[in-house]
Design a protein around this nucleic acid. Structure first.
Lengths: 196, 196
DNA sequence: TTTCAAAACTAACACTTATTAGTTTTTTTA
DNA sequence: TAAAAAAACTAATAAGTGTTAGTTTTGAAA
């Protein structure tokens, strides 16, 4: 029928993961079949198994790869010397950038992680909780030092993260909003909302 | 095996819808089978069809019922005499209240609408776009009257709506945050972020 | 207590699912 | 060009899907 064509510096597995990523985002993980993915690539479904271990594995790798990028960045920021408010702004900007540059994968990591099989589901949820706790801690320090408005840091973290992860809407909404404008506006609203 | 027990002032259909709602939220629409719903109620799957027309119908009714509640409230606010900022605050509070009081249904309407069959999918998306356009218009008027900070209203709407719909995280996160505290903190962050 | 409709049941259908086995084709290596 | 490895194919499996048909049970009205 056909075959998988990989570009330079990318394996055939990458091609599959990328196409799967697109479909998982558009239709959802459970609503996307291996046949869907295969057809989109131009190949029969069983052929995919020469390159990947399972459908679940694709999801797992997408979610954990994204999680790693966020925790790596967080560690970098935590060890830097800036005000706590600046750290938060930095993290917000990173989230927005990731949302724009790795849209499909971030979206899946945000919306489809439920379908991870154990023990990965538990692992993922722990990483997520941990990430939020670290963010809360930065906010709390900022509040203590009167840099940041006295709000519940837990609520603030939820507000920040979910407002950013909701940028999904912008892709769909016809007139694509300019990335830089999006970033500056969101930072304005969120940082203004937080700072004293 | 068993039977569906309806409380006063609620039909057996309501019992099915409510249980389905819980499962759709927890596992996702596609990952929830009619047998799952039936088992949770204590009945065989085909018995459900004495009360509902299809699985899709359940989803449809959940989504459109929630959409109606939001558009009804919006109309009310639009015809009221308050500043545009006050209108926005009012709408934010309504969204938070809905999120708390109709959690499962709002969550599904936010996250599972993709799986609506046509022509409902198109209808739903149109309603959604329309709702956001009306919100944008209120924001724009507020900006013109210098009540509201000069941000892109489209971005502001996305930020507001997605930050609220992300409250989902709070239920899961062990220590349930007090509803009133949640509302006041979110309003503080968002309204502070918007106002001049 | 008989009647009748509502609501449960079992059995089954037609389809889709992820994945495996075994085979053939294609590409790379020697 | 011959041999080996990679990657495609077809066929099939076992499990799960929403839903229908036909039948029995249940509960209320007569």
């Amino acid at each position: 029928m056909g075959k998988i064509i990989a570009k330079k510096n990318s394996s055939k597995k990458d091609v599959i993961t990328k196409k799967a990523s697109l479909l998982f985002r558009k239709k959802g993980f459970r609503a996307t079949s291996m046949r869907d993915i295969a057809e989109a690539i131009g190949v029969e479904a069983p052929s995919l198994y020469n390159h990947i271990r399972s459908k679940n594995e694709i999801l797992k790798e997408i979610c954990f790869n994204i999680a790693l990028q966020f925790t790596d960045h967080l560690k970098l920021i935590e060890h830097s010397k800036q005000s706590n408010l600046a750290k938060i702004e930095n993290i917000i900007r990173f989230h927005i950038t990731m949302m724009i540059e790795e849209f499909e994968n971030v979206y899946i990591s945000d919306h489809e992680w439920k379908h991870l099989p154990e023990p990965f589901l538990t692992d993922f949820k722990n990483q997520r909780r941990n990430y939020r706790l670290h963010l809360s801690a930065i906010l709390q320090k900022g509040i203590d030092k009167k840099e940041i408005n006295d709000v519940d840091p837990h609520v603030a973290v939820l507000t920040i993260l979910s407002s950013i992860s909701g940028i999904e809407g912008w892709q769909r909404s016809g007139k694509k909003i300019d990335a830089k404008l999006l970033e500056e506006n969101m930072v304005t609203i969120l940082i203004n909302g937080l700072k004293k």
